[in-house]
Design a protein around this nucleic acid. Structure first.
Length: 894
RNA sequence: GGGCGGUUAGCUCAGUUGGUUAGAGCGCUGCGUUGACAUCGCAGAGGUCGUUGGUUCGAGUCCAAUACCGCCCA
């Protein structure tokens, strides 16, 4: 009876939570500070504090936890700093919605202070959910260092940063054209605006020239903006209207007089070739207006209704105004025509509601001086972006950067530390709340009502979370961080800004590698959205298949910077992999019991032992190479294939035999099993931490309770999470040969299996076989038992000969390389069928020979490297042997 | 308008610095249940690597052009 009766199926439900708590309570997530030693640090991309877990979170947690666990196992002081983001707009909207639903009141009715209190209460209530969910994913963050963008320390950092930038003249307040969201009643930055294609209309109408019967035909997609026009522009080369330049025309309905100007921005081909200029509500027009010193007229209220400048249309919603105005113009004969037109409608990234360009007084960050050093650090390689192609995207954005509108007319966020003086109208910006105006000493000062863009505080994240602006031990030791791992969709929003802020405030790049993962999509490659109903909830997936299965799917299914499709079937397959690991582990544990206490004599490893160890070495080497080039997915896939396709499918089958042989053979086999399994668990741990830790614990326990004392040379570590990462071991010729020799055995076994199936031999039936193995007789004889078991042969009736003078009759012949095999399946032997089969095979081999001979006769043998040529020569000679054997067998059949 | 990515098996995707008859998972077909695992095993079918041209002894891989799909920026 086994001492370790593990269940037949891996049950993640009884494992995950227990292990996570065990890891956390043993402080395995906490780094030791080892002065002089370079630590490995990742700052988590902080999720929205009241957000819900989605696959994007699962993706970054899986990736980062992989990197963190790998680093930790390598013995490097490793820190993953967790935290959450206050997410200004998102959270405020949630709280507002809740307020409306539960109490039927608006935030304005509640008042600013009370509202902020509610928001904090909301955060207190729901803020822990997301971090709990990150734990569930196995995130090995140091939770004692958890931060929140709106906590006291970070608020101080934000304030310090703001004041410094202001003092340097990099923050300014001014009245410019910005993106206004009427729905949210706040300004948003350029980045937060997305363009949506919509079917719209292009309206053609007449701009009457003052004191003349002439008119200029003009086209617009937004007729309501006519009310804010302050010029009509034509191209300098445009002959048609040249004579009108310098004259004025009259705004329809309002009859305001506006100039006719020339500007090369005007596209001669578009519309009528003349452009109405609305500096108050269009970016391009705004710039033209600046060039020509045009008046800026705002016709909109903050809620997107028309204001007094719209004259008779005052109070109407903008779309209603559009219709009415057009109808009025039609009535007075000023319209020409309309035609369908596809518009690019600006919308907010969040709500999706239409954004109106509008002139407004806001706070801005001057970006160019910050962008320059940020470009420089990437150019000189201090920061490397993976995949590399995003470097170009990054350059392009920074080289064409525009000033950043950082003020938001919200309540939930970092309040701008600026006070306006009622007496002198000057602004006081200060680290501590001032009592009086810095300019005139007046006490009649009031703090600016706006808060900062959420991304302003996120930009400080890698150092603010470590204590900046204070000179803390953490900041000193852990900063700059090593890796910034996140989705490419926030390269500008977040990553670029962190680099700029990091350089500005700390003088150092905040991290050295940027690894950008792709976005997770559904099986058809579509974005997941609630409206499409194709959202996969990671929590449900984990409930059904376990965390490891989800992690492994995300980690092996994606390549850097490329989107991935996640299918549930893939997760299921990986759940099966966890189970495969588990059962292979069970077999090893049971095998241990068959091993004697100690080795009685020196004993050579078997061919299979040598092979699996050599293959494992190759795997370690590949994994090392792949990890260092950030090809984590490929590394994971190779581990999977090695474990399942080689260790489980082949070695374990042979190991059963070797264990049953008992004695020293069993002892040595158990040792190999333990060693290979142990190494595999170490390699796989960063990918699938739970099942590996659990199984490793059993393995360790079993080994420690076995008198043989199997285990790693330096003994078993406390836990897999802190166990040593396997180091690639040197490669030798012997390893090469071990792989070649065993590969031949596998080929032989496979060939026999194929033939069995082809001949319809029942799987359970043991059949006889005669092998003529020539030079390889030593190898084949030594492996006869293994071959017999794997190929379903009867060991009693398995003959291995070095040469065979008279081949057996009535036997099905086959050739593997230079080895001949005869399966005496008399009743299934059909001479015609065999002849045909052998002839076909011979033809195929001959074709191969021809191909290689041609190749070697050509320039290949002179131009290609010697080892490549040699390889082909070897292949050719083996094929020739095969051909001879096949021809011989055909001759026998007659 | 500028830039980027994708196009490989029925589906979802891998594929080192170019090395010579292209891989995985799922799906499909056939067979198989007394001891690691049916969340499994054995075997099989299935691909002119979008198209065209080029470089090379050799191209899925490098270059150029082109088509389609998608993304980003303006």
């Amino acid at each position: 009876m086994s001492q370790y009766t593990l269940p037949k199926t891996y049950n993640f439900k009884t494992v995950e939570e227990r292990l996570y708590e065990w890891w956390e309570s043993n402080d395995y997530f906490k780094p030791r500070i080892e002065p002089g030693r370079q630590p490995y640090v990742i700052s988590i991309p902080p999720p929205n504090v009241t957000g819900e877990l989605h696959l994007g979170h699962a993706m970054f947690v899986a990736m980062e936890d992989l990197m963190i666990r790998y680093s930790r196992m390598r013995g490097i002081p490793t820190l993953w700093v967790p935290g959450t983001d206050h997410a200004g707009i998102a959270t405020q909207l949630q709280v507002e919605k809740h307020l409306q639903e539960e109490e039927g009141i608006t935030r304005e009715e509640l008042g600013r202070e009370a509202f902020i209190e509610r928001a904090w209460a909301w955060k207190a209530k729901y803020g822990g959910i997301i971090t709990e969910q990150l734990r569930r994913l196995g995130a090995s963050c140091d939770w004692d260092r958890e931060r929140f963008t709106l906590d006291e320390g970070l608020s101080r950092a934000v304030r310090e940063a703001f004041v410094r930038l202001y003092e340097k003249g990099l923050i300014y307040r001014g009245t410019y054209l910005i993106n206004w969201s009427p729905g949210l009643r706040t300004a948003v930055s350029d980045l937060e605006v997305e363009y949506r294609e919509e079917q719209g209309t292009l309206y053609y109408f007449k701009y009457p020239v003052t004191d003349s019967d002439e008119f200029i035909p003009v086209a617009t997609t937004r007729p309501e903006t006519i009310l804010g026009d302050t010029a009509v522009a034509i191209h300098p080369n445009d002959e048609r209207y040249r004579h009108l330049v310098g004259k004025t025309c009259r705004v329809p309905i309002l009859n305001r007089s506006i100039p006719i100007i020339q500007d090369s921005y005007v596209d001669l081909e578009f519309g009528t070739g003349a452009l109405k200029i609305t500096p108050g509500h269009d970016q391009a027009d705004y710039e033209i207006g600046q060039r020509h010193d045009l008046q800026v007229i705002n016709v909109l209220n903050p809620d997107a209704t028309m204001n007094a400048n719209a004259g008779p249309y005052k109070g109407l919603d903008r779309y209603e105004c559009r219709e009415r105005l057009w109808a009025d113009m039609q009535a007075s004969g000023m319209t020409i025509k309309t035609e369908p037109y596809v518009l690019q409608v600006p919308c907010t990234q969040r709500g999706g509601e239409v954004v109106e360009p509008m002139v407004s007084t806001q706070w801005f960050v001057r970006m160019e001086p910050l962008a320059k050093p940020a470009l420089e650090v990437v150019r000189r390689g201090d920061i490397q972006i993976v995949p590399e192609r995003f470097t170009k995207v990054y350059y392009n954005w920074l080289e064409n950067i525009r000033d950043w509108c950082i003020s938001r007319q919200l309540w939930w966020g970092h309040r701008i530390p600026a006070w306006h003086c009622a007496d002198c109208s000057e602004i006081t910006v200060a680290r501590e709340d001032p009592e009086r105006c810095l300019h005139c000493g007046s006490t009649e000062i009031e703090q600016d009502p706006d808060v900062l863009d959420t991304w302003f505080s996120s930009g400080l994240w890698p150092f603010s979370t470590l204590g900046w602006p204070d000179d803390t031990e953490d900041l000193d030791y852990f900063y700059p961080t090593a890796m910034m791992e996140t989705g490419y969709d926030i390269l500008f929003f977040w990553v670029a800004r962190m680099i700029m802020m990091g350089l500005e405030f700390t003088g150092q790049s905040p991290f050295h590698i940027i690894y950008l993962h792709g976005l997770v999509r559904d099986e058809q490659g579509r974005k997941m959205s609630k409206t499409l109903g194709n959202v996969i909830d990671p929590l449900e997936v984990m409930d059904e298949f376990g965390t490891d299965a989800l992690r492994f799917s995300l980690l092996t299914g994606s390549t850097p910077g490329n989107d991935m499709s996640l299918g549930i079937q893939r997760v299921q397959a990986n759940r099966n992999f966890a189970n495969k690991l588990w059962n292979a582990g069970r077999l090893v544990l049971m095998g241990l019991e068959k091993a004697p206490d100690k080795l009685s004599d020196a004993l050579e490893p078997t061919e299979a032992d040598r092979w699996i160890k050599a293959r494992l070495k190759l795997l370690m080497r590949d994994v090392d190479r792949l990890f260092s080039s950030h090809q984590y997915a490929e590394a994971g896939r190779q581990m999977y294939e090695f474990f399942w396709g080689e260790f489980a499918d082949w070695y374990l089958e042979i190991a059963k035999l070797q264990l049953n042989a008992g004695g020293d053979r069993a002892w040595l086999t158990a040792e190999t099993l333990v060693s290979v399994l142990d190494t595999c668990l170490r390699l796989l741990h960063p990918f699938i931490p739970y099942v590996t830790e659990e199984l490793w614990g059993h393995l360790k326990h079993a080994c420690q309770h076995h008198p043989a004392g199997y285990g790693p040379e330096d003994g078993w570590e406390e836990a897999l999470i802190v166990a040593r990462w396997p180091q690639p071991i040197s490669w030798s010729e012997d390893d090469e040969r071990a792989i070649e020799r065993f590969t031949l055995i596998m080929d032989l076994v496979r060939a026999i299996r194929n033939l069995r199936v082809e001949k319809g031999v029942e799987p359970a039936r043991r059949i006889a076989a005669i092998i003529n193995s020539g030079d390889l007789t030593d190898l084949i004889s030594a492996q006869r038992q293994a071959i017999a078991v794997l190929a379903g042969l009867d060991p009693e009736q398995l003959q291995v000969h070095e040469s065979l003078e008279t081949p057996p009759s009535d036997s099905v012949p086959l050739v593997v390389g230079s080895i001949e095999v005869y399966l005496p399946l008399a009743q299934m032997f059909d001479i015609d069928v065999e002849r045909l089969r052998l002839t076909k095979e011979l033809e195929a081999v001959k074709a191969q020979i021809k191909r290689l001979e041609d190749l070697l006769a050509g320039p290949f043998s002179e131009r290609a490297p010697a080892d490549v040529v040699q390889k082909e020569r070897m292949k050719l000679s083996l094929l020739k042997e095969t051909a001879i054997k096949l021809a011989g067998q055909l001759g026998v059949i007659g």
